[in-house]
Design a protein around this nucleic acid. Structure first.
Length: 226
DNA sequence: TACCAGGAGAAAA
DNA sequence: TTTTCTCATGGT
């Protein structure tokens, strides 16, 4: 059981400051729902710029649908996936996902499933872990699920609001409890965290001299020892 | 040359 | 159960 704390109110302040600074981000950057879902797999441990190169390759080859990916020769698919690293692994993961997607009857059937059940189904697919599943739930299905990624852990641990090594679901629940929001809010928040991480704090030990600098001192007084 | 960047599964301890 | 290893591109 996770309860909201005074410290968690800082999560709201962080959101407000980021939104004031950067404005709406209009995420996820994809033209179709299916493209969003495979983008979530391709971005595993990979910068988005490299995922964009891969998506361009897939688009050029007409491989932005499940049937086409499954019918594509292995070598063609792995070559298309090369820019997003771990192309052999990701080719297998895309195959697993596409087989599941078709067996489930496609998007319209999946949209009828409750968030909890859909999350379990996604996590049962080989190659899809909590972050990838939540990316899909939030951005492809519009479900109110907060995505905890490397940018989120890095930013909030540097702010002193989390330790950084907490289990994925524990952090997710804390964010959801603190924000009490719906999918559009979580969507915007995650996009803002990524935007900020890329632009300002990627290589800094602490968030100093940026829009979030004042939050460090507030947080340092309230974070409990582990 | 070394390091880092939006994970996840398998193997080893 | 937890930790470590594997996968293996491209920019700085």
């Amino acid at each position: 059981m996770v309860t909201a704390t005074v410290r968690d109110k800082a999560f709201v302040v962080v959101y407000e400051r980021l939104f004031d600074c950067y404005g709406p981000q209009y995420w996820w950057p994809a033209q179709t729902t299916f493209e969003m879902m495979i983008g979530a797999i391709l971005t595993q441990n990979t910068a988005w710029i490299n995922v964009e190169r891969t998506l361009t390759n897939l688009k050029r080859l007409g491989l932005l649908n499940a049937q086409a990916i499954l019918q594509c020769p292995e070598r063609t698919l792995t070559e298309a996936l090369r820019p997003s690293r771990f192309f052999n692994v990701k080719a297998r993961r895309l195959h697993c996902f596409c087989r599941w997607f078709l067996a489930a009857g496609g998007l319209s059937n999946l949209q009828e499933i409750s968030t909890t059940v859909l999350r379990e189904k996604l996590l049962d697919i080989k190659g899809i872990g909590p972050e990838t599943a939540d990316d899909m739930l939030l951005y492809a299905f519009g479900r109110p699920v907060f995505v905890i990624d490397a940018y989120t852990r890095r930013l909030f641990s540097r702010l002193g609001l989390i330790h950084g090594a907490e289990p994925y679901d524990q952090l997710r629940e804390r964010f959801e409890l603190a924000m009490q929001g719906q999918a559009p809010l979580y969507n915007e928040y995650h996009a803002l965290i990524v935007r900020h991480g890329k632009e300002v704090c990627q290589r800094k030990a602490r968030c100093t001299g940026c829009v979030l600098s004042g939050i460090c001192s507030f947080a340092s007084q309230t974070l409990p020892s582990s």
